[in-house]
Nucleic acid binder design. Structure first.
Length: 826
RNA sequence: GCGGUCGUGGCGGAACGGCAGACGCGCUAGCCUCAGGAGCUAGUGGGAGCAAUCUCGUGGUGGUUCAAAUCCACUCGACCGCACCA
């Protein structure tokens, strides 16, 4: 065995070997429990970054550990390969997006292999492959046929840099999630998926997700934004129209002093036509529309509005109230119109104060302390109804219900549930995506491409230039087609799909990646799904993770699968940070995985990343920490080298009773370690503590080595065998090499997980802490299993205890066997 | 404003309510060495003391408990998400 640890030699050697064996290919096997571990597949940007390394290292440990535990593990990898950067590269450098993408995939796959990641490469997929996007198109048709895909004209988010529309989820603080440039509103006709139809189930089923971080569930909950209230209408007699309003505070209807419309509200025109206010209202609306989305919806922005000149009738009181238009009312939420109750809504309060609109108190606080003349802000607490006709005296919460009944009886309104969630805008005016399989025919209208005609191939010969027209629109051969219904001349849809559609079902495709007749076989999907452990960044909390849940529910309803949630357990890994900031080119603080692997090897890179912080927390990069991980492997190598011959020559079976004290102690530490590592890799995924206990075991081996030359080779073999198996999921290469140098047969990765021997960790004596009034004053060594009474007696025999107790009264004695004695004195 | 997460040595981080600081980094000393930015061994929270030992210490203030980093209340700070959502 080589005396020195040379990672490059060891790693190259085993990577070659593993590739030859295709060791991580999996098939359905009903003899063993299945386990599906998945890392979010990457966009093939060209190179792996440390975030990827962290993501895949975590997944790899889980996969390898579960396999050693006897699970039938599926651990696949693939490519989220459609998307903007490929197209930008085409515009900038004249490379075709397809060539650019496939080259990048090759490079990143090579890097993953250099990390020693245990993937089933037979299942590799790429969403830009025609055999994949054919089924993405099939999915689109499924949604269309279920009435879940539709086209509508709406004010949509437009990224000026990407030259395409974006879904609401993809706009972050008014900026594009990918390129960070400002997003503007544009009135366009676009394709949508009806995710709002699933809003309730997406919300309710969050409760099922016991294995998801609270944070992610809350974010989804916020995003869906369910609220319950009522909808009813104010009649506007002069134009014979009704203004519907949505409110969660139907208990305050008697306090309405005005109605406000969003500037975009369709009734505004009719209402102001011919009035003296018309000019002023139009000027106001034009000004508000010019404001960016961010400033328009900011809480900082001052509430502004204008009177329309019109009046509406409050159906509860018969009163006429003025109708205003104001910037703080959003057309997209509720009905685009709200009732103004200044006394009980802070926004209305501010608005009414500014424009001298009347305020009426309709809920009195429990202490009777509210008077409309003295309060200085809206009261939104609980209380008793006042100034509310028949509802006076009622508790306001109960009143909410009573008002609903009253409305429903008279048929003037109803209960309503509202969501913040909007439908998912799925069309994109870009080339590098899956073409939307729709055809426009002058005679037949919108016609879906028949499933048997799929795929709608993405043409290769396209000219790329920056601009707002989808490149596909300029490809005559693509656009012109025949109508599948009437056979007449027709045009293809030239938009492609949001790449989040591609990534919404890829985890199903892994279960049956080469199927040519359907997206996947249901039996296979049902065998593997749901994903037992999903791992990825938290940035997808309400993007990919919400879309994927939506897709899963639709596929379930379509009878394709029998599960309602795709990801049983979710681990959101933290970012990799350097000098306090996320690694990024612009900050110049990037450490490339390539560099680290070349210098220290993949095992070191993996070990450092897993050891430096718990997986869900941010990880501060430390070059010295990397050195430390490397040093540990050197230490491991030398100690195993020292005992290699001894271990290799030993029999696997030996008499545990023949061990001397030091050997017993070493064996005890081994089994303590097995226990700790097993526990740490169980539910908790605290890889850092798992590694620290393995380090302690190695330290114990060095301590043992100090003690002499005569050793029982059996225990040495047991220790090395178990040590290498414990470490194998973290550092696959070095453990494989050392395994072959010592234990020998087969691959360490084909071995079973070490078994914990409870007998081995038993000790004869244990240390007991003696406390006086909760403070540690002494420690004694006592035989294990000493009862409380004996322990107490022993404690009082101690000189130190006697000193403390002398002249005092013993109030109480607490004995925790095996742990401590606490004597309370006064 | 609403919701979530989190505050522990010089640093990354450990601690089923039971010895705070495991493990690693850094630092110090000794050994080994021609040498070492290699390796091995030992030490390493602050303060006091020659020492045994004492004392303070997990953002802050209270509380529960024999016992609190851990549980509860309030508070301060950091980060994240949503935010004029009616």
């Amino acid at each position: 065995m080589n005396e020195k640890y040379i990672p490059s030699e060891v790693e190259a050697k085993w990577q070659k070997e593993w590739a030859k064996e295709n060791s991580f290919a999996t098939e359905i096997n009903r003899q063993r429990p299945e386990y599906y571990v998945l890392e979010m597949f990457p966009y093939p940007s060209g190179k792996l970054h440390m975030g990827h390394v962290r993501n895949y290292s975590i997944g790899d440990v889980v996969a390898r550990h579960k396999k050693m535990q006897g699970y039938n593990v599926m651990h696949p990898m693939g490519w989220d390969a459609f998307g903007m950067p490929a197209e930008n590269a085409a515009i900038k450098h004249g490379v075709h997006p397809a060539d650019w993408t496939w080259d990048n995939i090759d490079n990143m796959r090579r890097q993953q292999q250099e990390l020693g990641l245990a993937y089933d490469w037979d299942r590799e997929i790429a969403t830009c492959h025609v055999e994949y996007y054919k089924w993405t198109q099939w999915m689109f048709l499924l949604f269309y046929n279920k009435g879940l895909a539709y086209k509508k004209k709406a004010a949509v988010n437009w990224c000026t840099e990407c030259n395409t529309v974006l879904a609401n989820e993809q706009v972050v603080d008014g900026h594009c999630w990918r390129c960070d440039s400002v997003v503007v509103k544009k009135e366009l006709e676009q394709w949508f998926f009806k995710i709002t139809q699933y809003a309730d189930r997406l919300l309710e089923d969050l409760q099922e997700l016991k294995g998801w971080p609270e944070r992610v569930k809350t974010m989804q909950e916020n995003w869906i934004g369910r609220s319950t209230g009522a909808e009813f209408s104010f009649v506007v007699p002069e134009i014979q129209e009704k203004i519907a309003v949505y409110t969660t505070r139907q208990d305050t209807v008697f306090g309405v002093s005005y109605v406000v419309l969003a500037p975009e509200h369709p009734l505004v025109d009719k209402l102001i036509a011919g009035k003296e206010q018309e000019e002023a209202v139009r000027r106001f609306i034009d000004r508000v529309k010019d404001l960016s989305e961010i400033s328009r919806t900011s809480t900082e922005t001052e509430k502004e509005g204008v009177f329309t000149g019109g009046y509406a009738v409050n159906p509860f009181t018969g009163e006429q109230v003025p109708i205003w238009v104001a910037n703080y009312v959003l057309m997209e939420y509720g009905t685009g119109a709200v009732m103004g109750v200044p006394a009980h809504d802070q926004r209305d309060w501010e608005f009414a104060t500014k424009y001298h609109l009347p305020k009426r108190l309709v809920i009195q606080a429990p202490d009777n302390g509210l008077s409309i003349d003295t309060i200085t802000c809206a009261y939104d607490g609980p209380g008793v109804m006042v100034n509310s006709s028949d509802f006076n005296g009622m508790d306001n919460e109960a009143c909410k219900e009573a008002i609903c009944l009253w409305m429903e009886e008279r048929n003037i309104g109803k209960r309503r549930v509202n969501y913040r969630l909007r439908d998912w805008l799925v069309s994109r005016q870009r080339y590098w995506g899956a073409p939307i399989p729709m055809i426009y025919c002058d005679t037949c209208g919108v016609v879906p491409v028949p499933k048997e005609d799929l795929p709608v191939m993405l043409p290769k010969n396209v000219s790329f230039s920056a601009g707002s027209v989808s490149p596909l629109a300029k490809v005559e051969e693509f656009v012109n087609c025949t109508c599948p219904k009437c056979g007449g001349a027709a045009r293809r849809e030239t938009d492609t799909m949001d790449t989040f559609i591609c990534s919404s079902w890829y985890y199903f495709r892994y279960t049956d990646p080469r199927n040519t007749s359907q997206p996947f076989d249901s039996a296979k999907a049902n065998y593997w799904m749901p994903v037992d452990q999903y791992i990825g960044g938290v940035e997808h909390a309400i993007l990919h993770l919400l879309y994927a849940r939506f897709f899963t529910k639709v596929l379930k309803d379509a009878g394709l699968i029998n599960i309602g949630e795709p990801f049983k357990n979710l681990l959101t890994q933290g970012m990799v940070i350097k000098d306090g900031a996320k690694m990024s080119k612009s900050k110049g603080n990037v450490v490339s995985p390539e560099e680290i692997i070349a210098k220290y090897g993949a095992d070191t890179a993996r070990l450092f990343i897993l050891f430096a912080a718990p997986p869900e927390r941010d990880l501060e990069w430390s070059d010295q920490g990397v050195e430390g991980a490397y040093r540990f492997f050197g230490r491991l190598w030398r100690i195993v080298d020292h005992y290699a011959a001894c271990a290799a020559s030993a029999e696997a079976e030996y008499d545990v009773n023949s061990l001397d004290k030091q050997e017993r102690e070493l064996r005890r530490v081994l089994h303590v370690t097995i226990g700790k590592v097993s526990e740490a890799l169980g539910e908790r995924f605290s890889f850092n503590t798992a590694i620290s206990s393995i380090m302690e075991l190695v330290n114990a081996m060095y301590a043992f080595k100090e003690h002499g030359t005569q050793v029982n080779s059996g225990v040495i073999r047991e220790v090395i065998s178990a040590l290498l198996r414990l470490l194998a999921p973290f550092a696959p290469h070095i453990t494989e090499e050392l395994w072959h140098e010592t234990i020998g047969q087969g691959s360490v990765h084909e071995q079973s997980w070490p078994e914990f021997d409870a007998e081995a960790v038993k000790v004869d004596e244990t240390e007991i802490v003696l406390q006086i009034n909760g403070k540690v004053r002494d420690k004694i060594i006592v035989p294990v299993g000493l009862g409380a009474a004996e322990l107490e007696a022993k404690a009082f025999e101690q000189e130190k205890v006697k000193e403390f107790v002398a002249g005092k009264t013993v109030v109480k004695v607490i004995c925790v066997p095996q742990k401590l004695v606490n004597i309370v004195i006064k």
